[in-house]
Design a protein around this nucleic acid. Sequence first.
DNA 1: CCGACAGGTGTGAGCGCTAACAATCCAGTG
DNA 2: CACTGGATTGTTAGCGCTCACACCTGTCGG
Lengths: 348, 348
Amino acid sequence: MTRPTEVLRPPTMADVAREAGVSHQTVSRVLSGHPNVRATTRDQVTAAIERLGYRRNSAARALVTRRSRTIGVIAVDPTLYGPASTLAGLQEAARDEGYLVSTVTLRSGGGHALEDALDHLAAWGVEGAVAITPQRSSVQALARLTPPFPVVTVEGSHRLDIPGVSLDQELGARLVTEHLLAAGHETVWHVAGPEDWLESAARTEGWRAVLEEHGIRPPRVLRGDWSPLSGYHAGQELAGLTLARRGTATVTAAFVANDQMALGVLRALREAGVRTPEQVAVAGFDDIPEAGFFPPPLTTVRQDFTAIGRRSIQLLLEHIEGTAAGVEHIVVEPQLIVRASTRSQDSA
Amino acid sequence: MTRPTEVLRPPTMADVAREAGVSHQTVSRVLSGHPNVRATTRDQVTAAIERLGYRRNSAARALVTRRSRTIGVIAVDPTLYGPASTLAGLQEAARDEGYLVSTVTLRSGGGHALEDALDHLAAWGVEGAVAITPQRSSVQALARLTPPFPVVTVEGSHRLDIPGVSLDQELGARLVTEHLLAAGHETVWHVAGPEDWLESAARTEGWRAVLEEHGIRPPRVLRGDWSPLSGYHAGQELAGLTLARRGTATVTAAFVANDQMALGVLRALREAGVRTPEQVAVAGFDDIPEAGFFPPPLTTVRQDFTAIGRRSIQLLLEHIEGTAAGVEHIVVEPQLIVRASTRSQDSA
DNA sequence: CCGACAGGTGTGAGCGCTAACAATCCAGTG
DNA sequence: CACTGGATTGTTAGCGCTCACACCTGTCGG
């Protein structure tokens, strides 16, 4: 009954039990903090564990408890500052709760890629997943799929029937637009993000709503893809409109949907000889670390990514534990950061 | 012997076997692609799997095979562009190899935090780990620890006895410095990163070596912490030196250890009325997406983060499979990207 | 016509752990 | 001093899977 050849393999609970002179079940009890274990016994077991360098086998545990204590994260482009920060927040929060986080990066945002990612996570038996899927198509795909575990979105839809956490993008856009109008600008132009992104749509919506509330007919929307280069192109167009100075085309303020594009816009304006903020005020969104050092320092909207990460883990755990009260949507408030790029004395 | 109450639980291999009219072992054989299964049998099993929506239980599999098919990643600051990109590369590569990646974010870079992270990963039975630990203290801590699985570093030391992948930082710094000297600058100033970072040290080393090879006594090193703000402070100092114009202090070129700090430097110079590149040429390192849109577009060194991620997974798998040939250090070559920030006609 | 030898399949024994129950101990009670 | 019940411990049976083996078929050579 004894192993013929003692292969080098990690000690098991039985080994610890033998070492401590108790049953394996007592070892289990000590490990799971069961109250009814005599203090002296507990000490013996603890000492034996220490001596042998024992650790519980998570696979065996998961098998019998049906809990992997692992959660999955699906992220679209974790190279961008926003998703990366959210990811970091998620990870910390999950670890504090005793969960391991397994991340899957999506190649493309397509619906099929998402399905594959969920499949991959399901194959490893995650207990739940957070999907950082800010694209409309992804969220719609998510709504169609029925993974065998709860899923919570970040920046996903609050329209669909999926629980999630998101920043109040619309409010952020409103703050920026109101700020620019308050500075005396007659209207505010807008460089939007990709059409498919919900965040982009919400920001555009907030901007449009404020203008309309002020009785201003929103100018034509320029569109980029979040990249500095696309912002640069939009900036060239804005510069052209500014210099043309005929009719309604005059541009004095622009709300750019993210900071990276704003950098491109600023560059294009500068190249065209348009001064910021004197001739055109520019505001961004995200407050990336570089934003305060743009030429000029950028007025933008700060997102509390850590909070978003934390809240989403919290929400997901509620769904895993089954204590969730229906489909909840948590909204985090943004903060307007005013810097030099919108600070001008005169206007219009 | 039959379950009294049929609880809602996922189908098992036995369920599939019953459905297909074979033994569970045959199902297992089909699933693992064993050759000796009759085609018709295989089809029946496959159909049954499909019908029941069966998936293998990874915990049970891991328990018996002693392989979790999970690898861990320890990342220091995944909000920075470099680590984030490496992470993304890692993830894709690992997934292609059929592994799940579990990431642990380090709170502080301290040695104890690293130990905790390894512990966390060990508790979940990862088969190996990649440590993105560019700080000297972390790598030293790593060398001390003996986790129960192979560990590969990214940007860790090639001096220590740990396998790893890294960019040839020193070469990158050499390229930049040579480039600036070739443009006619008498010397090149340097804004270094934090002292504790290996990358920082290697970049400084490359810079120093080139100057000495050219018989130039390296000027005093300014130091930042990778942040734009610290670059800004360094830039103020450089501006002061430039404007002073006495003796050896005149600054005409600066190699800044990363792009973010370079942004700060550029800002400080501009504020002080120092023109770039006409009066002072500036170069960075990393080639973040924003770099091409800095005022002026930044000359910098591009790192192929995807390649780094891929190679490190490859290396780690070799160690897991046991096919690794000793302690290998893979070095990836950087690429100099010349932009306007160093393009001037005249010099000195 | 029989044994050998493949392919194809089933059986049994665990992997290391937890959950349920059974067994034991001991202080407090009538 | 036997009796009860809670505290403490041990025993047993799986969780769902893979591995090693045993067991079947046939087909082939002698």
